[in-house]
């Protein structure tokens, strides 16, 4: 059983319900245990790095937005970015989330040979 995964699910449950009564804790535990579990090769370090990336990306997104407002970015380009090897689907999803969340870059496609196609805007 992957304890980290269970902890993450419990956190989401409590954020969703915002209720710490005993009945709600019991219901949350039941839901968390019943949801299907998939074995992955992600380590604690992988998760921590992704969570750190998400926290960094929030102020970064605002900085990029202000840059886009004050300096017009009118050129577009498509680049390829390499995925780190041996990633489980949840981590790939979070990677795509972090890249797309910052306004200058959007993931267009995730290719099976291990590349993201990233669309970005640039200053001319």
């Amino acid at each position: 059983m992957n304890y980290l995964n269970l902890l993450l699910r419990l956190l989401i449950w409590f954020l969703l319900t915002a209720d710490l009564s005993l009945a709600n804790i019991v219901i949350g535990l039941a839901v968390v245990l019943v949801l299907p579990n998939r074995k992955g090769r992600a380590t604690l370090g992988d998760w921590l790095r992704v969570i750190g990336n998400i926290l960094i990306s929030i102020p970064l997104a605002y900085v990029e937005a202000l840059e886009m407002i004050f300096f017009p970015h009118s050129a577009e380009e498509v680049t390829l970015e390499r995925v780190r090897v041996n990633r489980i689907p949840a981590l790939i999803f979070l990677d795509i989330f972090v890249i797309t969340f910052t306004p200058k870059t959007i993931v267009l496609n995730y290719r099976d040979d291990g590349y993201y196609e990233v669309h970005r805007v640039k200053r001319q």
Binding site: A61, Y62, A65, M68, I69, H73, F101, P103, I106
Partner: peptide
Amino acid sequence: VFWLWGTLPLLGKRSVLFKLHSLSVSDTL
């Protein structure tokens, strides 16, 4: 301000992807 700035490019004649970038400024941030 973000809303107004990001929504105005919708009126122009740029590609869907370019408008998506400015919409992510306005609608998300």
